[in-house]
Amino acid sequence: MIRLWIPLGVILLWALVALLAPVLPLSPNAIDLPHILKPGSLHEGLGYDDLGRPVFDRLLVGAHTSFLVAFAVVSLSLIIGSLLGTIGAYAGGWIDMVLVRVIDVFLAFPGILLAIALAGVMGPGIENVVIALSVVSWVGYARLARAQVLSVKERDHIRAAVAIGIPPPQIIARHLLPLISAPLIVEASFGMASVVIGEAGLSYLGLGVQPPAASWGSMIRDGTRYMLVAPHMVVAPGLALMGVVLSMNLLGDRLRDWLDVKNRSVKETP
C-alpha cells in the first residue's frame, strides 16, 4: 500500500503544482540583488540564486516545464509508436519488415545521445526538446506494441471479427488496442521517468528551455558554478527531480506487478 500511495501522492502533488504554476502568484524571474546566493531559511523559503531569484518559485515553475515536456513527449511517442507497431504487426509483409528495420536502426543509438545531437542542431527551445525526445522515445512503444499485437492477433475473437468483415481500422481500435494497452501503460510510466531525466539533461547541457525560463536541469547547471557558496541552488532542484523520477519508477514497478498478476489469471482461463 505504502509503495503505491506515496509515489502516487508525490507525482499528483507535483503534477498539480505544474498545472497551477502559471496562475500562482510566483515571481520566478524577479531579480532581488540584496538576496543574491542567500541560503534558505524558515522565512525565505529555499533561498535565492545567483541573480537573487527565489529558488522555491523557480522550482515550481520548473515542475511546469518538466511535466509539460514529459506529458507531451510520452503522449506523442505513445500514440505514434503504438500506432506504427500495431499497423506493422497487423499488416505483416513488407510493411512489417520495413518497420522492424527502422526500429533496429533507432535502437542502435544509445539512450539520449540522438536527442542531444538533434536538440543541439535544432537549437534550444521547449518545442525542440519535445521533438528531439519524441524522435528517440517512439521506438520503445512501437516495438512493444508490435510484439503484443503479434501475440494476440491470432486469437479467436479477432479471427471472428475478420471473418464477419469488420474493416481493419475498426478491428485494431475496438478489438486489438484494448488488449495490448496494459503493457503500454506500464511502459509509459517508466517512459515518464526517462523523459523527465531527458529534459533535465538537455537543459543541463544548455540545450533545453531558454533563459530566463526555469527548468530543474538548467537550475542544476546554474547552481554548479556556485556550489561552494550556495549549495542550495543545486540541492533543491536535484532533490525534486530525484523524488519525481523515483516515484515514477516505483509506480511503474507497482503497475507492472499489478498488471502482470492480471495477465497471468487471463492466461490461465482459456
Binding site: 521517468a193 533535465a200 539533461g201 556550489m227 549549495p231 543545486v234 527531480l241 530525484m242 523520477v245 519508477n249
Partner: peptide, 22 residues
C-alpha cells in the same frame, strides 16, 4: 538500486564534487 537508477548523472556528479572535492 531504485535510488541508483533514479539519480541523474548531472546531479550525482555535482553532489560528489561538492562532498568529495569541495
Amino acid at each position: 538500486a531504485l535510488f541508483g537508477v533514479s539519480i541523474p548523472n548531472f546531479w550525482m556528479g555535482p553532489m560528489l564534487i561538492l562532498v568529495g572535492a569541495l
